[in-house]
Computed example of a mutant assay.
Amino acid sequence: MSRKILSITKPETILFVHKVVFICLVLAISMVLATQAQGDLIITPGDEVTSGNQTSNRAIIDKLITDGYISSAADSVYKQDVGGSESGVAAGSYETTFSNTSGDPEDALIEYVGTGAFISDAFALVKDGNHTPAWYGFDLSSSGLNWNGTESLSFEDFWPAGGAISHVEIFGSVSVPEPSLELLLGLSLIGLVGVGAVRKIKQKKVASC
């Protein structure tokens, strides 16, 4: 019995277990990063599906409902005002950075920073309010720009001749991501490596008896 205990705690066996654990951790991290790695979806005013000169949010939303782009004001799940705070049920999953100038930005980058809920079947609104048009609307659904909810949205070159973005807003539904096939395969591989490590330890233990 004492020889079995000693065989499990041999330095080479402990080192082997540490190597297996390290490899499993590296594989797990690599799989997670691979599923999260996304390119930017670049959106310019030319990608619009609708626009208008309404200046109040209520009037804009009414037009979007009338034209069939959204079903109700409750569809608003994320909004970021320039110089203000985020709002909406998906606010914790996204972060917006305005650029060019802090007060009169032409660009906005919306990044997914969460690990859970994300927006699907989305429609985006970029508003100025003081120029023509006063706002642009973009279909981000699978029938439009096909945004997957986690890749970054890069809004570029809005009102370069003196206007500025006042806020960005996304309408849609909030979903919870399902594990991708690549991630499931990676986890299966990690499990197989772990099983192999256990078998190797058992074989060494039996051989030492």
Results as ranks from 00 to 15, higher is better:
residue 144 G to R: 02
residue 121 D to F: 04
residue 106 E to M: 10
residue 30 S to N: 12
residue 110 I to C: 08
residue 127 K to D: 00
residue 91 A to L: 14
residue 44 T to D: 05
residue 156 E to L: 02
residue 112 Y to I: 08
residue 88 G to N: 11
residue 152 S to G: 01
residue 43 I to V: 15
residue 45 P to A: 09
residue 204 K to P: 02
residue 69 Y to N: 07
residue 101 T to N: 12
residue 23 I to P: 02
residue 33 L to C: 15
residue 156 E to G: 00
residue 190 I to H: 08
residue 27 L to R: 06
residue 35 T to C: 08
residue 171 F to T: 04
residue 15 L to C: 13
residue 197 A to H: 03
residue 63 K to D: 15
residue 78 Y to L: 15
residue 31 M to N: 14
residue 47 D to A: 12
residue 180 S to T: 15
residue 126 V to A: 04
residue 17 V to T: 13
residue 2 S to A: 13
residue 62 D to Y: 07
residue 119 I to G: 01
residue 145 L to C: 02
residue 139 D to M: 03
residue 177 P to W: 05
residue 162 G to F: 01
residue 28 A to M: 12
residue 143 S to N: 10
residue 68 G to Y: 10
residue 102 S to T: 15
residue 188 S to Y: 08
residue 87 S to D: 11
residue 187 L to M: 11
residue 8 I to Y: 14
residue 149 G to A: 02
residue 203 Q to A: 14
residue 40 D to R: 10
residue 27 L to Q: 09
residue 176 V to W: 03
residue 156 E to H: 03
residue 192 L to P: 00
residue 48 E to F: 12
residue 46 G to C: 04
residue 1 M to Q: 09
residue 102 S to D: 15
residue 72 S to P: 07
residue 182 E to P: 01
residue 177 P to Y: 06
residue 39 G to H: 05
residue 140 L to D: 01
residue 162 G to C: 04
residue 60 I to N: 02
residue 85 S to T: 15
residue 188 S to R: 11
residue 186 G to P: 04
